[in-house]
Amino acid sequence: MASLNETGTTVRAPRAPWLTLKRRETIEGWLFVSPTLIGFLIFFLGPLIAVVFYSLSEWNLLSQDTTFVGLANYEDALTQNPDFWQVIRNSVIFAAGLVPMNMALALALAMALARPFRGVVFFRTIFFAPVVTSAVAWAIVWKFLLQGDAGAVNQMLATVGIDGPNWLREPNWAMAAVIVTRVLKMVGLNMILYIAALQSIPRDYEEAARLEGASEWQIFRMVIWPLLAPTTLIIMVITTIGSFKVFDHIYLMTGGGPENGTLVLAFYIYQQAFEFFEIGYASALAMIMFVIVLALTVVQLILRQKGST
């Protein structure tokens, strides 16, 4: 009974069962993720692969025939169809207008609201309210406010002697209007991300800089802004990618018009697929959108790596 007898152990030892603890863990792990994974394969990855094949075929839902056409849809978009480049131009203008305005406003609001004062919750609540509101509701109300002469915005401008344009009927004004109203809708989200980042900066830094005689602007420029850099990068990429996805806002405010002046890529895909039933062409557009977003993500990853080293 002192210690186990060597031969005794081998006789009594059962063969190692097939279901070892390690195997069990693996099986259980896959069972846990399987509902998500199976759904993901069917409703996300499968369609993503399907888009590639669709984009290589001529397929109009009305005529019902499908023929393999290689890269013709891409060629069509990139070289034939003048709409495509206008759509790209619109998308870029939309992003180029929206991203800086959104971020600058978000940062300014966050700087103002990061530290507690009487009323801070009130203001945060107001600036964030559009984020929880449906894009449809926001677009409907702003479309109402921005009507030509009858709109509340122009009527108010008239009281101070400004003759406002017919915002949503003139291409350039329409683009400006959808950008600004979209910024108002989404800026609250970036604001709270900036607030969270600002609040995680230890006050010691700021106080140390103040003791050294730095001005408010110097403190911001030399202490806070560099510490916010990682957050700024993430927000920039999320906002940029987000700006390429905007559909409902524009669909409801301008319907892509006037004169396709606000027709952006997400909308163009919808239009080609579900209004003109050009499935092949729409799929090629979807692939182009995928590549753009992929490129933006890769740029983000590279910047992040650079930032961390």
């Binding site: 152990t9 009594r12 030892a13 059962p14 279901l19 070892t20 603890l21 863990e25």
Partner: peptide, 22 residues
């Protein structure tokens, strides 16, 4: 305790080999 799997060797508690016992 069984919280960590065993890569090699044997573990006996009393007369029972417990390598793969939960």
């Amino acid at each position: 305790s069984g919280l960590e799997t065993i890569s090699g060797g044997e573990l006996w508690i009393g007369d029972r080999k417990v390598n793969e016992v939960q």
